[in-house]
Design a protein around this nucleic acid. Structure first.
Lengths: 336, 336
DNA sequence: ATGAAAGCGCTAACAA
DNA sequence: TTGTTAGCGCTTTCAT
C-alpha cells in the first residue's frame, strides 16, 4: 500500500540551504520571497522531483479544493454533457472533481457519509437522491450543496433548474393546437420533481384547450422502460395520436418503437415531443421536436453558485430558474 | 474558505472519557478494542456528529484511496459507459474517483502535475495524451497507471485493450467478401494507437482479398468531422461502396450523411461498419453492423490490474488484450 | 485493551 | 524577507 517515501519540502529545504517554510512559500503564489531564494528552491525542487503534497496542504487549510459531483446514471446524454462542462469549469477554478455515480437503488445515506468524510468543499447534485435529512447533514457539516434540476424540501440549499413547468405546458398546448386529441405523457421517475413539474405543465397546457391526457405512463428515464410503456399504450384501443416524453432519451425510444415495432408514421399518425435537446435529437433520422434545456447555462449557474457559496458561506445560497426553448423539428406536424 | 471547526476524534475522546487513540481504533476495522469502549465511543461520536477526517488519515497512511480517471471527452457513449462501470468497481473496492476531462488541446503536462500532486493511488487513462516522459514521471512518483485502449512506448505501465487489429481485419475482409470493391476508412485521431491498429487490420483484411482502401479520411472520433469527411468522400467521382468507421459514433455520422444528405441507400448502395457496439448502434433506425468491444470486461480488467498494482507494486504491471466480436446488423449486406 | 507520545507534510503566526 | 515554532486530525508504535 505504501509507496516509496516521497520528496518533502524538508528535503528541498536541506538541499537548497533554506528553511522549510521558505520552500512552502515558494509554492504559494501570494507569499513574499526574494527572487534569489526562489530560484535556489525551484532548482532544488526540480532536481529532487519535488511536488507539494496537497493532502497535507488540505489538512491545514481545511479545504481540499475538491467538489463532489453526484449523479445516478450516465446513459442519458444530458449527464455526460453536464459532467464535461462542469469538469471544465471546476478545473478552471482550480477545483478537482470527485465523481459519484449512485444508482437509485444504492445505499444513499452510506454514500453521503463517504462524500462528507472525503472533505469535499462542495457538492453538486444531479441526482434525485438527496432527502431532506441528508441535506440537513450537509448544512450541519458546513458543506455547500447545489442541486441541479432537483429539489428538496429544505432551505439553505441552492437550486438551479430549468423551467420544467413551462416546457411541459408548451408541449401540451402545442400538441393540442396542432389538432391532436389523444395525447399521452411518458413520465420520468415518479419521485423526480423535474418529471412532476413537466407533467403538471403538460396537464395544464392540455387543459387550456379543454383536453385531459389520454394516458400517463412511467418510463423512469429509461430507454427500455419507455419502449415497453409505448407498446403498452397501443396494446388496446387506438392508442394516442401524440406522445410527450419527459426526456429525449425516452422520446427516441418512443420513436423507435412507434416506427419499427408499431409501424406508425411519425408525425403523420403519431406526433412526438421530447425534452432536453441533447445532440441525438438533432440527428436527421430522428429530427425530434423537443424542449431545449440550456445545459451549459445551467451548469454555469450551478458551478458559480457553488463556488460563490464556498467562498462566502451559506448566506450565498440562492436559486435560479432558467428558461427553456421549444425546438421545432419533424416529429410534430406544422400547426395548421 | 474555512468552515466551522469540525468535530475531531479528540472531542469524541473527551466526551466518551477515553483516549483519542481509542476513538481512532474504533474506526479502523482491524484494531482491537473492547465492546464496552466501542459503545461509549460510538455513542459520543453520534451525539457529536463525528466523522473521521479522511484527509488526515490519508496524510499518515500515505494513501488517499482515490483513483484518477482521465479522459478527453464524453461525447462518444463508449466513455460514459466506461466511467459508469469504473465508478461502480472502484466504489465497491473503497476507492474514490477523481475525474479529469482533458481536451486534447489542453496543457496536458500541467494536468499531469495536478494529478500527481493530488496524491491519487493510481491512474486509469482513457485518454491518448500520456507521453512517455509523463509516463516516466508517474512511475518515478510510484503511481500505478493503467492505460485503456491506449499505448505508450514505455514499460512498467499496464495496458488493457481490445483486439483492434483483428476488428479492423474482420471489417475489411467482411466487406471485401460481401462483394464491395471501393472501401473507405474513416479513421479516428491520427495519433491514436487504437485507430492505427484498426486501420492496419483493415488494410490487411482488404489485402487478403487483393484490395487496397478506396480512401482513408480522418474523422478524429468527432461527429461533425466524420460528417464532413463523408461528404468529401463523395464530392468527386462515385464515392466508395462501403465505409468502415473507427467508432460507432462516427459511423452514425456517416450513416446520417449518407442517407439524408447524399441520398444513398444503406446497405444497398453503400455499406457501413462501425466499431464499439455502443447502445445507439442497436437502435432500429441504425441497426449498425459493428465490431463489439467488451467494454465491461475491459473496465473490469483495467480496474483489477490497477488495484492489484496499488496493492503489490510495479511488478504487478501487466497487459491484457481482449477479443472483439463482429455484430451483424443491417448496414451491411448478407454475404452472397 | 488502553493511553501517551511521536509524527505524516504542510501552512501560518510570530520573531528576528 | 526569512527562520522558528506550533499545530491541522489522524494512525501507529510503545509502554502499561
Amino acid at each position: 500500500m505504501k509507496r516509496k517515501p516521497a520528496v518533502t519540502s524538508r528535503d528541498v529545504a536541506l538541499r537548497a540551504g533554506v528553511s522549510q517554510s521558505a520552500v512552502s512559500r515558494c509554492f504559494s503564489p501570494e507569499a513574499s520571497i526574494s527572487e534569489k531564494t526562489r530560484l535556489k528552491v525551484l532548482n532544488a525542487a526540480r532536481e529532487l522531483g519535488y511536488r507539494p503534497n496537497s493532502i497535507a496542504r488540505s489538512l491545514i487549510t481545511r479545504s481540499s479544493r475538491t467538489i463532489a459531483l453526484v449523479l445516478s446514471s450516465l446513459d442519458n446524454m444530458f449527464y455526460p454533457l453536464a459532467v464535461e462542462k462542469a469538469s471544465q469549469r471546476f478545473q478552471a477554478e482550480g477545483y478537482h472533481l470527485l465523481l459519484f455515480v449512485v444508482p437509485e437503488s444504492d445505499d444513499f445515506p452510506g454514500i453521503m457519509d463517504s462524500i462528507l468524510q472525503s472533505q469535499v468543499d462542495g457538492i453538486l447534485m444531479l441526482s434525485a437522491l438527496l432527502t431532506s435529512s441528508l441535506a440537513r447533514e450537509c448544512v450541519d457539516a458546513g458543506v455547500p450543496v447545489v442541486l441541479l434540476n432537483r429539489s428538496v424540501e429544505f432551505e439553505g440549499i441552492s437550486q438551479v433548474y430549468s423551467d420544467n413547468y413551462h416546457g411541459g405546458y408548451w408541449a401540451g398546448s402545442y400538441l393540442a393546437m396542432s389538432g391532436h386529441r389523444d395525447i399521452a405523457f411518458v413520465a420520468g421517475v415518479e419521485t423526480s420533481s423535474t418529471s412532476r413539474r413537466r407533467h403538471e405543465g403538460f396537464v395544464d397546457g392540455l387543459a387550456a384547450h379543454g383536453l385531459v391526457p389520454y394516458a400517463v405512463v412511467h418510463g423512469n428515464y429509461d430507454f427500455d422502460k419507455a419502449r415497453h410503456e409505448t407498446l403498452a399504450l397501443f396494446a388496446r384501443g387506438q392508442g394516442p395520436d401524440a406522445i410527450f416524453a419527459a426526456s429525449d432519451h425516452m422520446a427516441v425510444a418512443v420513436l423507435e418503437t412507434l416506427r419499427h415495432e408499431l409501424r406508425r408514421r411519425v408525425p403523420e399518425e403519431v406526433a412526438v415531443i421530447g425534452f432536453d435537446d441533447t445532440p441525438v435529437s438533432a440527428w436527421p433520422s430522428y429530427a425530434l421536436t423537443t424542449v431545449r434545456q440550456p445545459i451549459d447555462e445551467m451548469i454555469e449557474a450551478a458551478t458559480s453558485l457553488l463556488i460563490e457559496q464556498i467562498r462566502h458561506g451559506a448566506e450565498a445560497a440562492d436559486s435560479q430558474v432558467l428558461p427553456v426553448t421549444p425546438v421545432l423539428r419533424h416529429t410534430t406536424r406544422r400547426m395548421e
